[in-house]
Every structure is written in C-alpha cells, then in structure tokens.
C-alpha cells in the first residue's frame, strides 16, 4: 500500500505520516501542493491519496478534479483532510468524487475510521 500525503505544512504531513505508520502503513511519500503531487501520482503507482484543500499553487480540490480527469488515476481513492469546513465546499468535494472528508482538527480515531471505510468500499 503506497500512500501520497499532500499538505503545504510539513508538520501536518509528519502528523499524518505518523498516524498512518501506527495504522500499519509505512510506505508513504509527501508533496507540498497539487502541482508537485500530480506528476508524482502520474509517474508512480500510488494506491491512496490524502490531500489538504488550501495550498499555494494547486489546491486540493483542483488536484482531486485533475485525478478524476486522468485515465490512469481516475479510480484512485482520495481522502481530503482539511480545515475547510463550508457546506458548499464539502458538497463540491463530494461532487468532484472525493472518497472521504476529514475536517481539521481531527483525531487519530477519525482518520483511522475514514481510511478503513474507504478501503472497505474499494475492496467491495
């Protein structure tokens, strides 16, 4: 299981990386915004994408749309982990095809639940 973590704050990437390691996912890579994440996603074989929304350069919602528009990546499971909490934004992300949405600040438990739920669905 190879996971890409995209967030512009290195501390948040580190927190997510640590939580993932506790959940047994040790194969992770990091990117600091959508435009550096997209080439990584295209050139490598990630199984899962965790992205923030608000980032300089390319935002998470644009990254999600780009992933869904790409032939190779369109079925990649995407979890949004973000402080963006407007109803319209959540609806927008859902319509763009996000697989899960976690609002910051989050608990280890919330992240774990969402990740497990996503994989249950992907496996089903």
């Amino acid at each position: 299981m190879k996971i890409l973590i995209v967030d512009d704050f290195s501390t948040m990437r580190r927190i997510i990386k640590n939580l993932l390691r506790d959940l047994g996912f040790t194969n992770t890579q990091e990117a600091d915004d959508g435009s550096s994440a997209l080439p990584l996603l295209k050139s490598s074989d990630f199984d899962f994408l965790i992205t923030d929304w608000n980032m300089p350069g390319m935002t998470g919602i644009d990254l999600l749309k780009a992933v869904r528009a790409d032939d190779k990546l369109q079925s990649l499971p995407v979890l949004m982990v973000t402080a963006e909490a407007k109803r319209e934004q959540i609806i927008e992300a859902a319509q763009a095809g996000v697989n899960g949405y976690v609002v910051k600040p989050f608990t280890a438990q919330a992240l774990k639940e969402k990740i497990e739920k996503i994989f249950e669905r992907v496996d089903a």
């Binding site: 402080a83 909490a85 407007k86």
Partner: peptide
Amino acid sequence: PEGPIINPEAREDVV
C-alpha cells in the same frame, strides 16, 4: 479556500 473557521457556532454555512 478560507482556512480554519474561527467562529463556526456563529455561522450558518459551515460545519
């Protein structure tokens, strides 16, 4: 993008 909402209880449009 708006960043963290500092007063969610005072707003209708956020969770």
